[in-house]
Nucleic acid binder design. Structure first.
Lengths: 201, 201
DNA sequence: GTCTATACTCTGATAGAC
DNA sequence: GTCTATCAGAGTATAGAC
């Protein structure tokens, strides 16, 4: 797992990964071609393969970088904090990620949609462990009557589903809303109401 | 738009479409190959192309069949019915579709995720029109105080997001829940509570 | 480190026998 | 209507000059 060392290598490597994120998230793994990635990156195709041994290696690198970013907001949910505040902060953070990193969201969605061939281990391990930990926290909050009682895992699923919808189905959301709408601003207000109403005892 | 006439042609045509649905929903358009579809269908590759002029034609046929099924439950929401009953029925029906037609759900998700290149017109037309019609119904129900006031479009988005999540992210849902869980049974109970709590005045 | 040229594989589609 | 054989193009990856 040696990584590029010099500044130029770092820079090119990042350029490639950013271009690849563009192309993979828009077209899926098979739909993306090295030609497209090379063009977006402004490099030649063989040059890509000087920095990464294969197309799949580029894809894998993107996916492994992704997971950390993905789980951080949930990790930040503090058992010692105020339950409703903590949950609403998580919802808001997750929605912000959908807004600011839609490419990452689509890459992840595509991967899971197709059975998570590359992320299965991470999902069954790291992700499941974190969810188990946080459902325990949610359950404790519910048991002590600080928020309404609900199946905690499904509460987490609902946060994922609702926030990612605005990134992953962006085309549909915008088509239905029509122009003169700010999907994410409206989503933030809506989810604020939804989860507050759902969780208040 | 001539369609196969004889019974055998109908049968083979349907076999191909069913196999194609398997492969397209699992791998996406570009990820699917005619070889795979032919193998699943139990036919030779040239034979596929005797029934359909191209790979894309198979895909397009699937997508156009899809939309009707997709919109029917929303269409069935009756302005004259009891608001909460109608909405809960829609939620339940949509979740049943996720459970019984996960391949169709993934095909649709894949299409929208990649910018809806084939369904754009249908989304901006048929789908938007129906949503506009039904948001007016929801708005009227809210105005008359029969359900809680919320942005109606986003209420519909939330139903789509929450129900489709269980089909499209099935792998993740099952991995997180672990064995000895029935995702859809739990989802039904959870969504029942969620929307009832959200909409009750 | 980066490019041009190219090898080789996969895959969509066609030709033509039966 | 269905098959075997095959073509043509796209796409990943490598060789080798600079």
């Amino acid at each position: 797992m040696s990584r590029p060392q010099t500044r130029i290598q770092q820079k090119n490597s990042n350029t490639i990964l950013d271009a690849a994120l563009d192309v993979f998230s828009a077209n899926g793994f098979r739909g993306a071609t090295l030609d497209q990635i090379a063009e977006v990156a402004g490099l030649s195709k063989p040059n890509l393969l000087y920095y990464f041994p294969s197309k799949e290696a580029i894809h894998n690198t993107l996916l492994s970088q992704l997971l950390t970013t993905w789980l951080d907001p949930l990790r930040a949910m503090d058992p010692a904090g105020d339950p409703l505040v903590e949950i609403m902060a998580y919802v808001r953070k997750k929605l912000e990620i959908s807004q600011n990193f839609p490419r990452e969201s689509r890459l992840f969605a595509n991967e899971v949609l197709h059975g998570a061939p590359h992320l299965r281990a991470a999902i069954e391990g790291e992700l499941k462990d974190l969810v188990d930990e946080k459902t325990a926290v949610l359950q404790a909050w519910m048991d002590s009557g600080k928020i309404a009682a609900l199946p905690p895992v499904h509460l987490i699923f609902s946060i994922w589903a609702l926030t990612q919808h605005y990134a992953d189905f962006d085309v549909q959301v915008r088509a239905v809303l029509g122009p003169d709408h700010d999907p994410f601003a409206e989503a933030e207000a809506f989810l604020e109401i939804l989860f507050r109403r759902l969780l208040t005892v």
